[in-house]
Design a protein around this nucleic acid. Structure first.
Length: 718
RNA sequence: GGGCGGUUAGCUCAGUUGGCUAGAGCGCAUCGCUUACAUCGAUGAGGUCAUAGGUUCGAGUCCUAUACCGCCCACCA
């Protein structure tokens, strides 16, 4: 054995050994209780980042641990087509290189390009996942947009459509005029901006707005019913008002969403372009008019302002209001929040549009239920299902403070807008012909039907992930054996996007929970606590770290010193520290190998001296604690315990003391047996955290009765 | 406006149902190239565990306030 552990020579080789052994695939493991984890599928938009590395480190630890404990363990890999993100990136690249937009290429040609881009990224990502040492069953790999998943998506859509849970409706959506698509509430980012705040004379009222250009069509003036100042105006009263483009007849509306303290306590509404206004209009059955087109330009209703872009129109509208003497005052430097598309698009312009929705409040009959608290046939809503499975503890969330956050989110949950005006993704399985609508898993046979051009929100397909990957809607053996899954391990940032949607989809479609436990890890930040981002230039590339210090060190640095749900701060120093630990284990093994060359394998535990036994029991204590902590998802404590034992007890004390013992012929033999024993078992216990170095030593060390790989050795303690 | 975290060694963080003489990594100081390892070893400096009260035999850990950081959610025109 070399003086230093060289990860470069060991990692690829051992991954191949594991893969070739076939034991990533549970079909090749002995029968037993199943243990399932599905990998949160990385997006095919780029390469692996530290967040992925963290997720792989945690999950691989769980999976290897349970495999060694004799569970029939399945860790199922895959990737996510990440509709909007992937389409955007591709379009951006095409635009930069060729100056063409997706409209220049057309749907088919553009999709071809996206598929190629997705495929290239997929290959990169998969290779990187392997480099981390992840013991995933590649024979079951899935993609959220492949044939089987597509069938699952269409099946789920059809069922929900038939149950009346999916409907088409006109609603205010977050429209991105730049990317020509809708954006979900969760994908919006707000940015504070200084702007002018205008007080305008609207008949007898003064109204305040930061967006005068939307006010062109306003003909409803709204105030709080209890506001004394406006007592003399009746609900429904008509008032003639001189406005931007001449006289309008305005109607007084009283509604208690109005805050009398804000501005003047009166506002006019623009139902087509504002969510609050839309809701007021819905409540009072008011007319809604579109002012701004989907291209972000003023419509004919704006008369002289027609065709102007929003910013330009605003300036001109204000100018005209000034000329007419309708501007009462202007507050400069008014702070308000601008909604932006977080997927790299433009400023959001609310619009009314026909969209597909999942109704989360509508009651339906559960066609089948194994869910605690609900029987087959019970009448429930999706919202109730989502709530109940966490309330009853059937799905447990770690750390549990996220329960509260989850409930709060459910309470605020609106119907889920699932249609997207992009081309890449699962096209909605609905066809139209002469005013007729047809929804099915497969297209209609006859000629002349045209499919809805929209695609589904990417979370619709990833919501099915725990069971679509196991072959659903077919009734497969895998589905029976491996579902519900045991643990869903992911970052807390996608608790709502994804975890909640999986609960929705699984309880609805299967009548059971998707997973028993949800473990949420934090975001990986840099050494100073800043979010790692390309623009800040503070990213640490996991692959660079793997090359430099090894996958084991990189993994351990992400596991130790981080608490569930708390952000992980990572620095290169920390990784280097754990690289040194890998080397320490290496040298411990070297020492034992050199000093036990004349090992007598007839010696057993029975022959041990009391001192030997005492030393061993100290190991057992540490191993037990490691085990217990890992069972309870206390990754950091678990790894730290065995780390500390190996370095500061086994190496610093036991080996140091053993030097003299090994020189003493009378005590040597049993001590040799003891050291070999503790070494082997330490390797096992360390293996879930540092698979490569432990495997490499295992392969080289002349242990008796070795198996093909350490990966399937038996866990040493209960 | 609601909610959730954090505040522990110079830095970044752990701390399991309250028992801690408060730990880890990195950094720092002194010594040591001793045939497992200098990616090391030995020794050491460094903390009124944010602040103020309280519960308790005992509190970093539980309770109540306060301060400052951070995050999430929400329709303030």
């Amino acid at each position: 054995m070399e003086k230093k552990y060289n990860h470069e020579l060991c990692e690829e080789k051992n991954y191949k050994l594991w893969e070739d052994s076939g034991y990533f695939n549970p079909d090749n493991l002995p029968e037993g209780e199943s243990y399932t984890v599905v990998l949160p599928p990385p997006n095919v938009t780029g390469k692996l980042h530290m967040g992925h590395a963290a997720m792989l480190a945690y999950q691989d630890a769980l999976v290897r641990f349970n495999r060694m404990r004799g569970k029939k363990t399945l860790w199922l890999p895959g990737t996510d087509h990440a509709a909007i993100a992937t389409a955007n990136k591709t379009e951006k690249i095409i635009y930069e290189k060729e100056g063409k937009t997706r409209h220049d290429l057309g749907r088919d040609l553009f999709l071809e390009r996206v598929h190629q881009f997705a495929k290239d990224n997929h290959d990169t990502i998969i290779n990187q996942v392997k480099k981390m040492g992840a013991s995933l069953d590649w024979s079951r790999e899935a993609f959220t947009l492949d044939e089987e998943r597509s069938l699952a998506v269409r099946t789920a859509f059809k069922r929900m459509y038939d149950d009346g849970l999916i409907y088409q409706g006109a609603r205010i959506v977050n429209w991105d005029p730049f990317m020509q698509t809708t954006v979900s509430d969760d994908e919006i980012e707000y940015k504070e901006e200084k702007t002018s705040f205008y007080y305008l004379q609207f008949g007898p009222f003064v109204i305040a707005t930061s967006r005068p250009e939307t006010k062109l069509g306003d003909k409803y003036v709204v105030m709080h019913p209890d506001d004394r100042r406006y007592k003399k105006y009746e609900h429904g009263q008509k008032i003639t008002v001189e406005w931007i483009n001449g006289e309008v007849i305005a109607t007084v509306i009283k509604d208690d969403v109005i805050d009398p303290e804000f501005g003047t306590g009166v506002m006019t509404i623009t139902p087509w372009h504002d969510n609050t206004d839309f809701e007021i209009a819905e409540r009072h059955n008011l007319e809604k008019e579109q002012i701004i087109g989907f291209d972000g330009k003023m419509l004919p209703i704006a008369k002289e302002f027609e065709g102007l872009k929003i910013k330009k129109a605003r300036a001109l509208v204000v100018e005209k209001l000034r000329e007419k003497g309708l501007v009462v005052k202007v507050e400069e430097n008014y702070t308000h929040r601008v909604a932006l598309n977080s997927r790299g698009g433009g400023v959001i312009e609310p619009q009314i549009k026909k969209q597909w929705f999942v109704d989360v409040n509508k009651k339906f009959n559960l066609s089948f239920s194994k869910i605690k608290g609900f029987k087959t046939g019970d009448e429930v809503s999706l919202k109730e299902l989502m709530q109940k499975v966490v309330e009853t503890g059937e799905v447990k969330i770690f750390p549990d403070r996220f329960n509260k956050i989850y409930y709060q989110w459910i309470d605020n949950l609106h119907n889920w807008c699932i249609s997207r005006q992009i081309w890449y993704g699962h096209q909605i399985p609905v066809w139209y012909k002469e005013g007729e609508t047809y929804c099915d898993i497969n297209p209609p046979q006859e000629e002349g039907w045209e499919q809805d051009p929209d695609t589904l929100d990417t979370w619709f397909s990833s919501g099915l992930w725990t069971f679509s990957t196991l072959g659903w809607p077919k009734e497969t053996e895998d589905l029976k054996k491996y579902h519900p899954t045991d643990v869903l391990e992911t970052g807390y940032d996608i608790l709502f996007f994804w975890v909640a949607r999986m609960i929705l989809m699984t309880t609805y479609n299967l009548g059971e929970i998707p997973f028993k436990n949800v473990y949420l890890h934090g975001m990986v930040r840099d050494g100073k606590g800043k979010k790692m981002s390309k623009s800040l230039g503070n990213t640490i590339d996991p692959l660079d770290m793997v090359d430099e210090y090894g996958a084991d060190a990189t993994r351990l640095s992400l596991v130790i010193g981080s608490a569930p749900g708390n952000d992980i701060k990572l620095s290169e120093d920390k990784i280097r520290g754990y690289r040194n630990f890998a080397n320490k284990i290496w040298n411990i093994s070297r020492f034992i190998m050199m000093r036990t060359e004349d090992y007598d394998n007839s010696v057993t535990e029975k022959d041990w001296s009391d001192e030997d036994k005492a030393i061993y029991s100290e190991f057992v204590e540490a191993a037990k604690e490691t085990t217990k902590n890992l069972e309870e998802f206390k990754f950091s404590l678990s790894a730290e315990t065995i780390y500390h034992y190996i370095w500061h007890t086994f190496a610093d004390k036991v080996l140091e003391d053993s030097k003299s013992v090994l020189d003493d012929e009378s005590r040597k033999k049993t001590r040799q047996d003891l050291l070999r024993r503790i070494l082997l078992e330490s390797l096992k216990v360390m293996h879930p955290f540092m698979p490569y170095v432990t495997e490499e030593i295992y392969q080289r060390f002349p242990f008796s009765d070795k198996k093909e790989t350490l990966m399937i050795e038996e866990w040493p303690v209960l």
